[in-house]
């Protein structure tokens, strides 16, 4: 019987460990995305300033903005596209306007395409790093300061930075 017990314990332990492993896949996946650029995710924290500018080539960066149908805002980039040298620090703004008569809190989720270039898209300052509260009817320009890493492989010439604006999760849950 004790032979049974020790084997059962090991197997149960394995089950618990695998259940935990399922949850461990969440942070592991983030690391995996960081390395491989799945879904074009970018870092949620500020990058270091560029150390050089690569004058030898230009990259086109396009800006897109969409919002979840559940949040009534107007949301658009001020600039549609930029041509810039890798390493060149630039600031562009996205304009958001609260179309409701109540205060809302929004979160912006960035996505860079092609995904494999995402880790070469460096944001020094971004409105997506924090939640953005908006007063009723408020309209504001939200800046993002970024550069394209000079290490960006030469096969990428067009990058797209897209934001999707959501009502922040804490707020929708409390409603």
């Amino acid at each position: 019987m004790s032979a049974h017990r020790s084997l059962i314990n090991k197997l149960l332990l394995a089950c618990v460990a695998m259940f935990a492993f399922g949850f461990a896949l969440v942070p592991l996946y983030d690391v995996f995305c960081d390395i491989t650029g799945i879904n074009g995710k970018t870092d949620k924290v500020a990058a270091a300033a560029p150390d050089r500018i690569d004058r030898g080539r230009e990259v086109t960066v396009e800006f897109l903005a969409t919002h979840d149908p559940a949040v009534a805002v107007n949301f658009a980039p001020e600039t549609a596209r930029l041509r810039l040298n890798p390493g060149d620090l630039q600031t562009v703004s996205f304009v958001v306007e609260n179309r409701t008569g109540e205060p809302i809190v929004t979160t912006a989720v960035p996505s860079v395409s092609p995904g494999e270039a995402a880790r070469h898209f460096m944001k020094i300052e971004c409105f997506c790093f924090q939640e953005q509260p908006l007063a009723p009817g408020e309209r504001k320009a939200m800046p993002v300061q970024f550069y394209v890493d000079p290490e960006l492989p030469a096969r990428f010439k067009n990058l797209t930075l897209s934001y999707r604006l959501y009502r922040s999760v804490g707020q929708s849950a409390s409603r």
Binding site: N39, S111, S113, P114, T160, R164
Partner: peptide, 8 residues
Amino acid sequence: AIPGFINE
């Protein structure tokens, strides 16, 4: 086509 993310 994945909500929230872009692919190309």
